[in-house]
Simulated assay, not measured.
Amino acid sequence: MTKKEIRQQQIEKLSNFAETPEKDAEDQILLKKIMNLQWLNECQTVGITSSLTYEVDTSGLIAQLWDMGKDVYLARANDNAERSQDFIYYSYMTKLTKSKFGVAEVSEPDAQINNDLDLIIVPGLAFALDSHQRLGFGGGYYDRFLAKHPQSKTVALVNSKMIFETASWQVEPTDIAIQTIITPNAVLANK
């Protein structure tokens, strides 16, 4: 199967899963697991995306990060040939708009950009447990960003429908492995 076919298959699988109570239960387990990580306390700046309905829900995590006094930054894809992205300061007062990808992004043109983050919570459609490789949405935004900012810790919240024992997709030299994968059953740090 091609990456495109696996992406389509995963979006369908995750969309169906999103309509079940199991998805909500797993989202709560993943939220609890990340909140219990000791090193989360040491991070002040956190990059995250506003989740789509079929992704692990990040709204509760964002609220808890604010409650902890963390500085939260939402990813925003730049409309340029390089397919770059930035992380934009996000508070409960921030105005959001939907991007061309359907993701809520900060719409304020003067909002603060911070790309030197302590932690980035990386989204994806599929994650390989053995190599920590991820299958993203096909734009390469995160891989490009992470290649330029290797100092940031990376973590992914991975529900049961996103788990692959090994990558069944073509892993490119430009693909960046995720340091820590959190599943409903485990917290897996990359060796």
Rank of each mutant, 00 (worst) to 15 (best):
F164N: 13
P123W: 01
A111D: 12
G139D: 13
L117I: 10
S160W: 10
L135M: 13
N159S: 07
Q151A: 09
G124I: 01
S107G: 05
L129P: 06
P123L: 04
Y142A: 06
I120F: 01
G139S: 14
G136V: 06
V103T: 11
I120L: 11
Y142T: 08
L117Y: 06
G139L: 08
Y141F: 14
L146W: 11
I163D: 10
D118R: 03
V122Y: 01
K153A: 12
E108I: 05
S131W: 14
A104E: 13
M162H: 04
S107L: 03
K161P: 03
R134C: 02
S107I: 03
L117D: 01
S107C: 10
K161C: 12
A111I: 12
M162Q: 15
S131R: 15
Y141R: 11
N114P: 00
I113V: 14
H149C: 04
G139C: 09
L146H: 12
D130G: 00
L119Y: 04
S152A: 15
Q151P: 00
D116S: 11
D143F: 10
K148A: 15
H149G: 07
L119E: 00
A126F: 06
D118K: 07
I121W: 00
K148R: 13
A128E: 04
D118Q: 07
L157Y: 11
D116C: 02
I121A: 00
S107D: 03
Y142R: 15
H132F: 04
I121D: 01
G140K: 14
N159D: 09
V106G: 02
D116M: 04
L135A: 05
A104N: 11
K153N: 14
G124R: 01
L125W: 07
Y142N: 06
V158L: 13
D116A: 08
K153I: 04
H132I: 08
G140L: 05
Y142P: 02
S152N: 06
F145R: 08
Q133H: 15
K153W: 10
F127V: 10
S107Y: 01
K153E: 12
A128H: 08
A126W: 03
I120A: 03
V103N: 04
L117P: 00
F137M: 10
V158A: 13
S160Q: 15
S160H: 14
N115L: 13
Q112E: 14
